[in-house]
Write a protein that binds this DNA or RNA. Sequence first.
RNA 1: GUCCCCAUCGUCUAACGGUUAGGACAUCGCCCUUUCAAGGCGACGACACGAGUUCGAAUCUCGUUGGGGGCACCA
Length: 495
Amino acid sequence: MSQEKPVRVRFAPSPTGKLHVGGARTAIYNWAFARANGGTFILRIDDTDPTRSTEENTQVILRAMRWLGLDWDEGPDVGGPCAPYKQTDRMDIYLDAAKRLAESGDAYPCFCTTDQLAAAKKAAQDRNDPFQGYQRTCRDIDPAEAQRRIDAGEPHVWRIKVPLDRGDVVIHDAVHGDVTFDAKELDDFVIIRTDGTPTYNFATVVDDAAMGITHVIRGDDHLSNTPRQVMVYEALGAPVPTFAHISMILGADGKKLSKRHGATSVEEYRDAGYLPDAFVNYLALLGWSLDGDTTIVPRDVLAKSFSLDHVSKNPATFDPKKLDWINAEYMSAMDDETFAHTVMVPELVEAGLMEEGECKGRKPWLLKLAAIIKPRAKLLGQCADLCRFLFEGDEVTMDEKSVAKGLAKEGCGSYVNAAREALASLDTDHWTADDIDACLEGLPERLDTSKRKFFQTVRVAECGNMVSPPLGASMELLGRDTSLARLDRARTLCG
RNA sequence: GUCCCCAUCGUCUAACGGUUAGGACAUCGCCCUUUCAAGGCGACGACACGAGUUCGAAUCUCGUUGGGGGCACCA
C-alpha cells in the first residue's frame, strides 16, 4: 500500500438522455473519491451508440454537472493530457487497439450473420446447453483464408479471443469484495462491429487503460460485464483497475427508478427548487454514510471524508421526503442575508414583485422579511407566494374562504374597528412588530372574544388569508399607512 | 433458462462475535403558540426464514425464500 499510484477516476455518461439521479450519484461518488484522495476526476462522454447519442444531451449533462458543482479536472471542454474526451473523437484509437490485438492473435474476424448467430443460440437453448454464448465458429478459420474473405469485402466483426485456459475470473471489488465468475461464462464477444465502430465493452476498457484509470466506480448493472472487460485489459496487457460497483437507486415500489416514480433527471430537481448542495448531500447519503449518525454532510466534508468502504451494497430507495427535509435544512442554515440575496430576492424579481434596482435601498426591510420567510420555505420558488401579500398595496388579494371565516362573521366589524383605533395611536416611530403586538394584545379580552377569533380577523384583513407569517412582523413590513388602509377596506367586507 | 449481486424499523443507515440492536427521514402524541411554519420533548417501529459453527451470531458457513441486474454488432 505504500506505493499506490495517484488516483484517477472518471465519470463516463452516455448522452442518450439527460443526467438522471442514478448517474448523478455515480458522478458524485467519483468526484468525492478523487477529491478525498487528492486524485484526478475525469469526465468522458461515452457516445459510441451512434443512434441514441446526441450533442444536445451532452450539453444537458455538462450543465447538470456544473449545477451539481462537480468540477472535473479533465474532460471534453477543459481538455487534458488524454484528450480527446469524447469517444466518437477517439475512433482511430479503438481501431488501432483492435488491430494490435488482431496482430497478436488476441482478436479474430467473425463472418457469422445475425441469422446464423440467432440460429446457433436457439439450438443451444433447445439442447439445454448451459453455454448460450457465441460458439466460436470463426475462431479457427485459417488467418490467410480470413484475410482473403476480408479483402473480398465480406462483412465481418472482430471478436476477442479468450484464452481457452483462462480459468475463473475473480474481480476484486471495493464494495463487494471478491466476486468469482466461472470461466465457461466467458465468450468471444464482439469488440468491433460490422460498421467498424467499437462496442461499449471494448471502447470503455481501451479508454480506461489509456487514461490510466485506477478505480472504476460505476453502477451495479455493470458487474456482470466486468469479467469480459477484464479479458480486454489482459489482452491489452494493461493493469486491471480496482472496481467499485455501487447499487442501483430504486423507486418507492422497489423497482428501478423511472419516470413512473416522478422526476428522474437532475434538471427536474433543479427546476423544482432544490439547492444543489442539498441535492448532492441527499444523493451522497443514498448508499454511503459518514458515520451512521450524521445526516448533513456539506460538500467540503464529503470531498474530505468520502471513502469506498462506507459504501453500502444494498439497493437504495429514493425518498423525496428526506430530500425535502435536507433541502429545508440547507435553507435554514443560511444566514438571513445570504438567504435574502441568493434565494429570496431573485425570486421576487422573477415574480415581478420587485425591481432589481430597488433591493439595495430596502436591505433592512429585506432582512426582516428573510427572517420570517426562511423557516416557511421548503423549496426555492415558494418565497414569492409567501411574500406576495406584502406587495399588493392597499388592495390585497382576498382569499374567499378566509373572508368567509374571518371577516364575514358576526362581530368581525367590531374587531376591525378596535384594531384600527388602537393601531392609529401608534406613530410611525413605534411601528415595529413588538409594539404592534403589544398594542393589540389586550384587545380580545376587552372585546370579550377569543384571541383566535380576533387575530384571525385582523390577519385576514391585513394579509388576505387566514394563513400568513406572524401578524406583527407582517404589519411592520407593510408599513403603517398600508396596514391601516387594509383595515379600512376590510371593514367594508365585514358582516 | 443461466450467471452474478443484494437482504437490519415504512425509507436511508450504524453495528465489523458479547449493545436494552444506535441515529436520521416519515408517521403519531405532547409542549410552545394568534394562523402557518420552525423549534423542543416523547412514542411507534427492524436483524426475511431454516439449519449449522461458537460458551456466545444481526454479524461467520450452507440452504430456502424474496428482490435486483447481466447474458446484444445498447451503454
